[in-house]
Design a protein around this nucleic acid. Structure first.
Lengths: 346, 346
DNA sequence: TGGCGGCCTGTTAACGTCAACAGGTACAGT
DNA sequence: ACTGTACCTGTTGACGTTAACAGGCCGCCA
């Protein structure tokens, strides 16, 4: 920041301004503005003249000036942590696409570490003064206690019921139920579960839904194997499962951990799906090429991303604070990692 | 855009302005500006007064106004396509981190489809008027013919020599050489290659480097198996390799395709690494848990991201157009998917 | 002693846009 | 003929910031 400008003046090549267009079209700047913003009450001929002048000089409204004047930025902030996770990435992709199509820019606010200070800093630095609204792509437990600027529209992508913002997410509970019931339907006595991190709401939802499904079917609920989304954690859990002869069916809270489970089972000589069936969650691109191809729960991150943008823009434009939950239905993709337990005639 | 605003006026709650701070501190607005921008020649006592006034009212400079006045945005545009690919994601993550730490915001400009019109549209909509410089994360062949606004600093993350911009990237050629030589060192006669898409520069570099390495060692160069980065393509290639008894060593242009190759080899009953050795490229998180754990080339996307941001900011601040290539050295990570060919005493 | 350069601060005028207001004209309804 | 309403356009000023300039003070050197 300690730049004592050698570069002087508003040096940057500036494009044509409203005034330039106005001069060429022989109208006032205000009329150019009206055309640019599609206001009512502009004579068709005038509009044509203005448009052609715009084209002539390659006019594009100056976003900074517009923002300064109107307080609107046509920009959405996305707070994200760990871009590298499968879900976050795909959702961000969809958000970016949807926003762009609606004429909004995307401002990425990365949260460098998980501390709340970091989140606050992200806000402080760019938040309020730059965006019209915010999509929170961070698991919300990380945000506990962080004040989102009052009055700024916010949409959360995380199925936590504990926030007063609109929520868009995949229906974690439904997904977990589909996975669990699939295994039960195949004839397995019960289903073991490798869970996501304790603090993650989505992990929690998957776990409780798995548990409830088992209970609803009158099955015993085996102890949960803890995990943290990582392939390594899946591997650890897999080793423990492999050594337990009773285990015939496993539901893993995401695909990456499922990969670890598969590897552990291979290592221990337990065949999939002959000895053990495995179901994942996410349907990442590679899942179809795991060994064996993974039966998993497909989440439509696209829909979630688009939904989040839509909800946010609605709120920005209406100025009204909604609090609704939009859950996107996942679907089960059956591949080769699941089968009836041994000694069953399917 | 055809919003005829029911929402009226600069409604948005605005924070404290420079003028507010100035009033409290008993100085002129200009002095506040000087403090905010770390200019020289501010008396220590005055600076302290201003800073405390800033804290008192929670002042944060209005970025829009600053941009309007100075033509600088403190913001970097990142043009990206296919966020979901391993490399792009990690690099974007690193870019975002580096930019944030330097006080720059990140403007994501997603390219929805691969057409050049889409890229142009991304620019037109938000590009020039919003950012001080651009990092191109798209494989540049997609950009052929698209005019990047003259005078806007640009850094390309793609090892193509055909552009006149600074380039930061992993050293693809070195990586491919490491992979190939590793297999030769193990005693394999030659190495087969599953390539990335024809149009991708990085894929091309990996391929030619593989070829040159073989030639340098006086080995025959087997025909290239075409691929497109996807696990599916790797699987197809893997099936063909599996049927060829001569194949004992494969270098795959990325890990995802390597996964497909592994699966094909398993299916055909060819054991890895006993019958066939496989090396990947990327070192994605899951690679260590493939079956068997994948020997691969580790790329430091972190370093690339940080390097790109540094180079861009240098150019923004100096105003000078550099054209240098910064290559980050990858390293080989040896795991369990490679071994000496059968009938060798290693 | 005068002059010069380094330090510190304030005043002024824009940057490009749009909301608010202030006209207008044209036409329908009374 | 008068009023009201829909349509169309222009003028003014302000959003919050900083570049350019102007001016002051102080100490040092010739």
């Amino acid at each position: 920041m300690a730049t004592d400008s050698t570069a002087s003046g508003p040096a940057t090549r500036r494009g044509a301004s409203q005034a330039d267009v106005a001069r060429i079209a022989g109208v006032s700047g205000q009329t150019v503005s009206r055309v640019a913003n599609g206001a009512r009450y502009v004579d068709a001929a005038t509009r044509e003249r203005v448009l052609s002048a715009m084209r002539e000089v390659g006019y594009r409204p100056n976003r900074a000036a517009r923002a300064l004047r109107s307080g609107r930025f046509q920009s959405i902030g996305v707070i994200a942590f760990e871009l590298s996770s499968v879900g976050t990435t795909h959702t961000l992709d969809a958000i970016a696409a949807a926003a762009t199509q609606t004429g909004y820019a995307i401002n990425l606010l990365p949260v460098l570490d998980a501390t709340q200070d970091a989140v606050r800093a992200a806000f402080d630095q760019l938040g309020e003064q730059t965006v019209d609204g915010i999509i929170i792509l961070v698991e919300t437990h990380r945000l506990d206690g962080v004040a989102v600027p009052e009055g700024l529209p916010v949409v959360v992508v995380d199925s936590s019921a504990e926030y007063d913002y609109p929520i868009v997410d995949n229906d974690q509970a439904l997904g977990a139920r589909l996975a669990t019931e699939h295994l039960l339907d195949l004839g397995h006595e019960t289903v073991w579960h490798v869970a996501g991190p304790e603090l993650s709401y989505s992990a929690r939802r998957r776990r409780t839904s798995w548990q409830k499904t088992l209970e609803a079917h009158g099955r015993t609920v085996p102890p949960v194997l803890p995990g943290d989304w990582s392939t390594g954690a899946g591997y650890e859990a897999g080793l423990r499962l492999a050594d337990n002869e009773e285990v015939t069916a496993v539901f893993t809270a995401n695909d990456q951990m499922a990969l670890g489970v598969l590897r552990a089972l291979h290592e221990r000589g337990r065949r999939v799906p002959d000895d053990v069936s495995v179901v994942g969650f996410d349907d990442m691109e590679e899942a179809a090429y795991f060994w064996p191809p993974l039966t998993t729960v497909h989440q439509s991150f696209d829909e979630v991303g688009r939904g989040a943008v839509d909800a946010l823009i609605r709120e920005i434009q209406s100025g009204e604070h909604e609090h609704q939950e939009a859950l996107v239905r996942p679907r089960l993709v059956v591949r080769a990692s699941t089968a009836p337990p041994r000694g069953t005639t399917a």
